[in-house]
Design a protein around this nucleic acid. Structure first.
Lengths: 304, 304
DNA sequence: GGCATTCTGAAAGTAAGTTTCATCCGTGGC
DNA sequence: GCCACGGATGAAACTTACTTTCAGAATGCC
């Protein structure tokens, strides 16, 4: 039998490679050949079949099995998956990413993609971190109780505003978005106590949006501002201020990161509102989904 | 140019889980059961034998093999190894965040925010990971060379389409977005060789968008599809397919995560196009920024 | 040299993975 | 309504991979 049934102290979860190299001297010659192959390139070993590995180590399958047992594995398949896992873990994440940085002139698409996605993801995460749940709660309450919700935003922020309007509408809340400043002003003038007006402006300086929000406030509506800059003009007229956290990079990706951050905030509010009246919201969503069903191509193509 | 040579955007090197969830809808019911088990707990799946997994998915081994082939693996052992590797690489979600999971009924705002932002950020990162720079490059080339670019999208994807149109326009490229299907069809009919038509559809099944894209293709335009599902109908009509990687969560945040993923892709394309002609693009952006300057409130308020 | 011990691979045996094929079921054409 | 068709599916046959057994070879000890 084995020299001694030694119970290894090595933890199950990690360090198999280290464990093996530690055991190496105590292994028989044929097993050592196997061990060396495994330690040299775990990922490669994981890809091989037992016969393949045995051949590479100039030994038999039986020896490979013995090796597995020697290092505390049940069998070869078990060793394989452990090796694959270990090999994957030690691969360094490719961090040539320029954090919040500019995109160098000679950058290729792969670099651009890495940089943009990194910044975008960061903007989303950091926005969430600094969002005040208490303020969100109050905004959600206001929206839930509102007879009508107006969402304002210009240009890029207009998309976000429009998106929010659409979402609220889909769960059966009365919401409007006005792409035109005059229409927006008219609508704001018709708001009253209990209604909600939400102004979205990345810079917080878009006069059109501020103006409309002021109008809404003057009529008694609850006003909410969504901006990247907590001390920008728009916050003066807002009862509640929600901020995004897009680092200002360059003109290029900064705009998009802020957009994503805005959308994330919007989504949180939306889910918050929907959660307030779960069943009704779900029903409304189902109904609207059914409505567009005829516009869906049903055949899901299969592989050949 | 790339009439027959269809280029798919999915990398084979990484993001298998993401890849699988993208393919999910195009799989047969029995295979879907397998896929769900795998996606839900890759590490656990890697530990199981094929018979075991088949039993767990209430199907036969044959179906598991079919599933392996469907997702581009040679066989079950290969899948196992890959899954083990991916599971190991995956970072544990910090706390009780349910990855891609539902939001529990009793969740408070803080939980909602954490869950949503986590999933949103993940969608962005995973989309970037599986984006094929080579395909992006070709799309960027096509857009750069195009006389005209049409961007199509309905409802939620319409916002994205519109956003892209606006971005391209701002850097001086001729681009259109049509909110109306008839206008879109008319426009598509006027496209010709060298022009580019981009169809955006999360599900890949929106018949309106597909129809317009077909029209564009018939007229000789280069067609691009942006969807979450690499085997959905829309990909049949596209010369180039770009995929997002939003895991389908529930009705709630799934839509938003996919939106963010789409925007990220759009932004990459945009920056790619802008980088092709750096100085011209920058000048155009400066000019357009100046144009809206009068609509900015200058006074930056200081602390109260 | 004899004997015990360990190492080793051939071969047998078992389990896992893969292919084949008949059946089932839904769809679309007549 | 019927039939043909094609995809989906699992049972079973089959292949390959893994594991065990066992006997011979090597080593080392007297």
């Amino acid at each position: 039998m084995a020299k001694t049934t030694k119970v290894s102290a090595t933890h199950e979860s990690s360090g198999l490679i280290v464990h093996i190299s530690g055991l190496l001297p105590s292994l028989s010659p044929a097993e050592q050949r196997v061990a060396r192959l495994v330690v040299a390139d775990p990922a490669d070993a994981a890809r091989r079949t037992i016969t393949d590995l045995a051949t590479a180590a100039e030994t038999s399958e039986a020896t490979v099995i013995r090796f597995c047992r020697s290092v505390g594995m049940e069998g070869y398949p078990q060793l394989r998956i452990r090796l694959a896992a270990e090999a994957a873990r030690r691969v360094e994440p490719p961090d040539a990413r320029v954090v919040g940085g500019d995109i160098p002139p000679g950058a290729d698409l792969a670099q651009i993609i890495a940089t943009i996605s990194f910044n975008d993801a960061r903007a989303v995460e950091e926005t969430a971190e600094q969002l005040d749940p208490a303020v969100c709660e109050q905004v959600v309450d206001a929206i839930t109780a509102a007879g009508r919700v107006d969402v304002y935003g210009a240009a890029a922020s207009g998309f976000v505003a429009s998106d929010f309007q659409q979402k609220l509408h889909r769960i059966g809340r009365t919401a409007f978005y006005w792409p035109d400043i005059h229409m927006a002003l008219t609508s704001a003038a018709l708001l009253g106590k209990g209604d909600v007006a939400i102004g979205i402006s990345h810079t917080g300086t878009t006069s059109d949006v501020i103006e409309v929000l002021q109008q809404a406030k003057a009529r008694g509506a609850t006003t909410v501002a969504l901006t990247n800059f907590p001390r920008s003009p728009i916050t003066d007229t807002a009862d509640f201020v929600l901020t995004t956290a897009a680092r200002e990079t360059t003109y290029r990706s900064g705009a998009m990161a802020s957009r994503l951050a805005q959308l994330t905030v919007i989504d949180c509010l939306f889910v918050g509102v929907a959660a307030r009246n779960r069943t009704k919201a779900r029903r409304a969503l189902e109904v609207t989904a059914e409505a567009v069903q005829p516009h869906r191509v049903t055949s899901a193509r299969r592989s050949r």
